[in-house]
Structures are given as C-alpha cells and as structure tokens.
Design a protein around this nucleic acid. Structure first.
Length: 576
RNA sequence: GCGCCCGUAGCUCAAUUGGAUAGAGCGCCAGACUACGGAUCUGGAGGUUGGGGGUUCGACUCCCUCCGGGCGCGCCA
C-alpha cells in the first residue's frame, strides 16, 4: 500500500470523498461520477463517513443487496488509502475515513482559508440581481416587509460567499395614490415642516384615513393630487419628492439597524417614463389584444388562466407593466445572469405572468428569473397591539433581550455595553426565528421561543460563539497553526471535524435552493456538537500537544460559526 | 367554483431531495458540576408522518383521491 500513499502532496478534503467514489466505482464497475452522486451519509457517525446503497445494482447483478454490499466491502477493504475501513451493513457499504488524516486535511484547509473558509468561486463572472424588501413608502414599514428583508439579505450574502457578483435592489413603492393621501393629510391637518418628519407623516396619514371615512371628498382630493403628480405638476412633484426623501431616510436608518444594504433604490417612480416602450413593443409584436377596453396578453397556452393585464381601460399602466420594464432595465444595466425576486407566496401568479410575458417578448434570460417565495408570519405583534411597526418590534426585541439577560442568567459577565448586546440579541432572535424554517411555510412567531438562550434560537448560536471565544481567550496558550492533529481521537472531535468539513457544501446547498434555513439548521448542529464536546475536549490544563490540537479544532469551529452567523445577518459577539 | 401551497411528538421545527430503527429544541420526568462561560450536558416518556389507495427492492418524500388550513383568481401594488 505504501507505493500509492499520497503523502507527497497535501491532501484535500474532497480527496476523501473522491477516493470513496473511485474505490466503489472500481469494484462495482460503475462510473466514479455516478457513484459520487449516489454517496450518502450513514445515519449514525460511528457507522462511517460515507455510505453507498447497493439496491440499484441488485437488478443488474441479479443478487440481493446485502450480498453485493458484502462483496464490494471485501474487495474495497484491501484497496484503501485515505479511507481506513469498508463494512457492509444491510444493503449499504459504509466507508470510514482515516480520522487523523481527515482532521489534518480539514483543519489545515480551514486554517489557511481563515475568514474565507467555506466560500468558493462557483459564481465567478456571474451577476445576480436580488429584489428584496421593496416596501411601500409613505406608509409605515409594516412587519409584512420584514420577512423579505431578512431572507433577501441572507441570500445576498450567501451568493456573495459563493463568488457571485450580487446587486441588491430595493424596488421601493414610491409612486401611487398613497402619496396623494399623504399630501392631503399634510395640507389639511398638518404644518409644512411635518413633511420632514416621518412620525408626523404617519400621524397625518392615519388622520386622513379617519377623516375620509365620513368625508368622501377627501378621497377625491387625494386622487386629484396624484393625477397632478402623474401629469408632471411641479407643486405636486415637489411635495412628493419631499415626502419620499423623508421616508427613504427613515427606511435607510432601519436597514442600517438590521444590517442590510442595497445597491439600488430604483423604485416604481424610476420606471414611470420607461413603460411606453413596453406597451409599444407588446403591440408591435402582436402579443396583445384588447378586452373590455384593457390591453391584455392571453396566457392560456402556457396554462395560466388569468391574462396578463398591461394597460387599464383608462390608458394607465399597472404593476405588471412596471415589472416588465424593471426586469429589462436590470438586465441591460447590470448584465445580470439571474434576477431573483424575494416576495411573498401570495404573488406567485403575478410572477408566473411576468416571467411568461418576458419569454413571449423574446428574452432568453426569462428562464433565469426566479420567484423566491415565502409564507406568512402570524403572531408577530408587540405588547402595544396588533398593528405593529418594525421599529417598535426591534425596540421590543431589545427590551426583552435585556430583561432575559438580567433575569435568567445567574452568572453575570461584565459587559461594556449591555444595550449593544441586547440589540444584537434581539435582532438575532427575530432573524433566526425566520431563517431557521423553510421559507415556503407559514409560521407563528413566539417571543418566548425566539428570545430564549436555550433551544434552537439565534441567541443560543451567539452564546456558542461567545463560549469558544472565551476558551480561546482564557486557555492561556498561543494557538499554533501547525499543530499536530493526531491527539484528536475522541468521537466528539471527529464529529466536529466532519461538521467543519461540511460547511462549504452547506453554503452551496443553501444557494442552490435559495434556502437560508439549510445554513441555519447546520449551524444549530454545529453548536450542539460543540456543547456536547467541550467538557471532553478541554484545552486549559491539558498537555501542550493535546491542547494545541483542540485549539486548532475550536478555532475552525469558531470561524465557521462566525461566518455562518454573519451570513444570516446575526452579529457574532466575542462576549455577551 | 378553479388554481397554487402547507398538514410530521402536546408546542416550534428537521429528515442529506426516493434510502438504514422518522430526528432536534421547548415543555414534562430522572440524573451530572468548585464551572477554559451551567446561557451546559447525559438519559427517559412522547409518532398509524391528516385518512385511504397506488407506484417501487424501499415512500414523510412521487401519483390519485378525500379531509383540514393558507393564499390567489383583469383594470390595487
């Protein structure tokens, strides 16, 4: 066996799986790539690191799967290098890695990549535009917009980690009759300087709606203001611009608090002068027909019963028209290979129509438009009432985090800034409650479940990170990046090494499925693996070789937690 | 009425996309510490995966059907 040992070069983590696939392929007479696709993981770690199911071979070989597994396992056993065992178990061949060499490869790779561990270059040269958050301004930022912001922000960072150029777009709703209402509210009930303060604007907006209940004239007046806006009236536009700026400033402060950034705020108003082209083109290509006075495209051939409505009977355009213009603009401006829309499931039909219309218009990139949909959130209310605004929600999260920290935690740590920690914990609670579930599902938000430091929560993950930080800080050793890993013999250590090794694949999977929960659930597993091991794998007081090996492992775990939490939008603190 | 989506432990969610005995957390019960952060860990109880058919060596996963829930269905966005 010595002749084919790969000690002449550094082993890479993929080499272990590669060898598993090759060995099986050789003895099962299959293509290594096909075998690689079939490899899974055994249900329990002590059964091995890779599993090959023999069931599909049964028909071909006319033998029972357990017999085949036994034959392959026997032949493979004599033919291993990086792997150190092949056992048949039922219809499976289970393969185990040489744990020392595996730990060496994994931890060496994590150490040399540092903060970049887990990232890859899959997306090099490709651009993805992600449309997310996209609230209606001149209305308060309702929690309904929160989910898009949280999921979209996570997807931006996931795709950046995968090497893509990402353009974050906030398609703000900054045009529409709500501005007319806002202007009337301001004119009738407010002072001119109220236009510069969002709280005043909110108050006036509510006041408008209350008054409009009994006075229909107000509604007509609002329509008139919006008509003037659309007609290019300078007075109306100046008011609109002022209200818009006030709102956008406020939104940007909230985004700052949430840690999300946008590359573009080109919203609805931006496309006002870009929709005539769309209508003309649709007409010129003979795609459209007039129905009840409106311009529609029949999509029944594509199995969509509801036609796409592009122009109302009164000649004005619609949501869909604007999205067609926006998609073309984005494609032309950013040269993006993909446009991702992070919008609630309720708009599935709209996006089906949009993508089909783009296809009909002859855009080959229509097939690369994706609606990343998500379900409803229930129960996200504050103590003050049902209709909550995002800022109130964040404040309440911070208060609850602070109360939890002061009430439940017996051993207090000296923190320079408790408020900062509470703010980070509150946001972690809200973000993680959202990101740990498959996005398509509706879910019920529960303060007590989310804010707790025990269980599957954001704060729990933060505490795992802070705990490792504590170990590294207090162990009294300078980490040695070249430490020998052979003392890492415990099953707990191997479990952690395997988890660290999985991280790059987890990011890829999260990106492939547009599913941050893949990452969130993996991080929980990692944190649990850490907590289950840290009494066994002590660093302080151990002899140097063992201590350094464990330190190397913990450093890698900390890096992964840090990276993963940051991608989810949670701040990994050193102390909390 | 039609279309799309969701039903997994008391509760909140997983299950490597068709693989092994369906796993975690919360809650409940029983244990473990002078602790590199107990904000923890180790056990236990708890399941006809909404019901019924089908496909397959194998189904929580795919197909059909029924039940329950959510969302949507041309001049809002």
């Amino acid at each position: 066996m010595d002749g084919k040992r790969r000690t002449d070069r550094a082993m890479r983590v993929e080499d272990f799986r590669g060898e598993a696939a090759e060995v099986i392929a050789r003895h099962a007479e299959l293509d290594p790539e096909a075998v690689d696709r079939m490899l899974t993981m055994p249900p329990k770690p002590d059964m091995g690191d890779f599993a090959f199911p023999c069931f599909t071979l049964a028909k071909k070989l006319r033998k029972a799967p357990p017999v085949i597994a036994k034959e392959i396992a026997e032949k493979a056993s004599a033919d291993l290098d990086l792997l150190c065992g092949a056992q048949a178990a039922g219809g499976y061949v289970n393969l185990s890695v040489d744990r020392t060499r595996f730990a060496d490869a994994v931890l060496r790779e994590a150490a040399s990549a540092g903060e970049a561990y887990g990232t890859c270059a899959d997306g090099t040269g490709q651009t993805i535009a992600i449309d997310y958050s996209s609230p209606n301004i001149a209305k308060p930022f309702h929690v309904g917009h929160l989910r898009s912001t949280i999921i979209g922000g996570a997807l931006v960072r996931i795709f950046e980690a995968l090497g893509y150029e990402v353009v974050g777009i906030n398609h703000v709703g900054d045009w529409g009759t709500q501005f007319g209402r806002q202007i009337v509210g301001l004119k009738r009930f407010g002072k001119p300087e109220d236009a510069d303060d969002l709280m005043s604007l909110n108050r006036l907006y509510v006041q408008f709606h209350e008054a409009a209940e009994s006075d229909r004239e107000l509604v007509e007046e609002a329509r008139e203001w919006f008509r003037r806006q659309e007609a290019g009236d300078q007075v109306a536009l100046a008011l609109w611009r002022r209200i818009r700026d006030t709102s956008l400033d406020y939104f940007k402060r909230i985004y700052d608090r949430l840690g999300v950034r946008f590359d573009s705020y080109t919203g609805e108003s931006f496309f006002n002068d870009k929709m005539d082209v769309v209508i003309e083109e649709v007409r010129a290509k003979g795609l459209a027909e007039v129905s009840d006075g409106a311009l529609i495209i029949d999509l029944s051939e594509e199995g969509i019963d509801t036609p796409a409505l592009l122009e109302k009977a009164d000649g004005t355009t619609l949501y869909l028209t604007r999205d067609v213009a926006a998609a073309r603009y984005r494609h032309d401006t950013y040269g993006c290979d993909r446009i991702v829309y992070v919008v609630a499931s309720g708009q599935s039909l709209h996006f089906k129509q949009l993508f089909t219309v783009l296809k009909r218009l002859g855009h080959p990139w229509a097939k690369d438009c994706v609606h990343v949909n998500f379900g409803l959130v229930q129960g996200m209310s504050t103590r003050k009432g049902n209709v909550i605004y995002l800022e109130e929600l964040l404040d309440e999260a911070r208060e609850r985090a602070l109360a939890y920290m002061q009430g439940e935690i017996e051993k207090r740590l000296e923190l320079e800034d408790e408020e900062t920690v509470a703010e980070a914990v509150g946001i972690a609670a809200i973000f993680f409650a959202d990101l740990s579930k498959q996005r398509i599902k509706d879910y019920r938000f529960d303060w007590d479940l989310a804010i707790s430091f025990d269980g599957d929560t954001g704060p729990y993950l933060m505490s795992a990170h802070a705990r490792i930080a504590g170990i590294l800080r207090n162990c009294g050793l300078d980490p040695d990046p070249d430490a020998d890993v052979s003392p890492l013999v415990e099953p707990e250590a191997h479990r952690l090494v395997s988890l660290v090794a999985r991280y790059p694949g987890v990011l890829r999977e999260a990106g492939r499925l547009y599913e941050p929960s893949v990452l969130a659930n993996y991080l929980l597993e990692l944190a649990r693996g850490l907590h289950a091991s840290y009494t066994v794998l002590r660093v302080k007081g151990e002899e140097t070789g063992k201590a350094q090996a464990r330190l190397l492992l913990f450093t890698a775990v900390k890096q992964v937690l840090r990276s993963g939490l940051t991608i989810l939008g949670i701040r990994p603190l050193e102390r909390m």
